[in-house]
Simulated scan of single mutants.
Amino acid sequence: MINVLFAAKPERWVTYESPLHNALDAAGITAHLSQDIPAQDVDYIVYAPNSDLQDFTPYTRAKAVLNLWAGVEKITGNETLKIPLARMVDPGLTSGMVEWVTGHVMRYHLGMDAHIVNPAQKWITKAPPLAREREVVIFGLGALGTACAQMLLGLGFRVTGWSRSPKDVAGVTCLHGNKGLDEALSRAEIAVTLLPDTPATTDLFNTETLAKMPRGAFIINPGRGPLIDDDALIGALDTGHIAHATLDVFRIEPLPQDHPFWAHPQVTVTPHIAAETRAITASESIVENIRRGEAGEAYINLVDRSLGY
Results as ranks from 00 to 15, higher is better:
D168G: 00
H244S: 06
L152A: 04
N221W: 01
V46E: 00
A143T: 15
Q54R: 14
A131M: 07
I280H: 07
T57M: 00
D168I: 00
K9Y: 06
V65I: 14
N22V: 08
G296P: 11
R134L: 05
V101H: 03
L152V: 07
A147C: 04
T209Y: 07
V117T: 13
F56E: 02
A7P: 07
A23H: 09
L141I: 13
T281H: 06
R305A: 09
P196C: 08
H244A: 02
T125S: 13
E276L: 12
F6D: 06
L110M: 04
L155N: 02
E79Q: 15
C148M: 03
D231H: 12
L24Y: 10
P256L: 04
R251L: 05
I220A: 06
P129A: 14
P49C: 07
L68A: 01
V136Q: 08
A236T: 04
T193A: 15
I190Y: 05
E99Q: 15
Q121G: 02
H32T: 12
G293A: 09
W123N: 12
A27E: 13
A70I: 06
L93Q: 11
I37Y: 00
A243I: 01
F6E: 00
N221A: 08
T60M: 02
E294H: 03
P222V: 04
Q121K: 15
F157N: 06
G145A: 05
G96C: 12
L204S: 01
G92K: 03
D197C: 11
V46C: 06
P10E: 10
M97D: 02
G161Y: 05
T201I: 04
L227I: 11
L227W: 02
R251S: 07
T80K: 07
I37E: 02
E73A: 13
T209A: 01
A236N: 06
I234F: 09
A263V: 10
A236F: 03
L130D: 10
T193Q: 00
S165G: 05
Q266P: 04
A48G: 12
D248W: 05
G142T: 12
R164Q: 14
D168M: 08
I242N: 02
D238K: 14
F261R: 10
V4K: 01
T15M: 13
T57N: 01
L302W: 07
N301C: 11
S306Q: 15
A127R: 13
D231S: 10
G145K: 00
R251Q: 09
A282M: 10
E135N: 13
A282V: 10
P226L: 03
C148W: 00
I252Q: 14
H32N: 15
A62V: 08
F139I: 04
A298V: 05
E11F: 14
A23C: 12
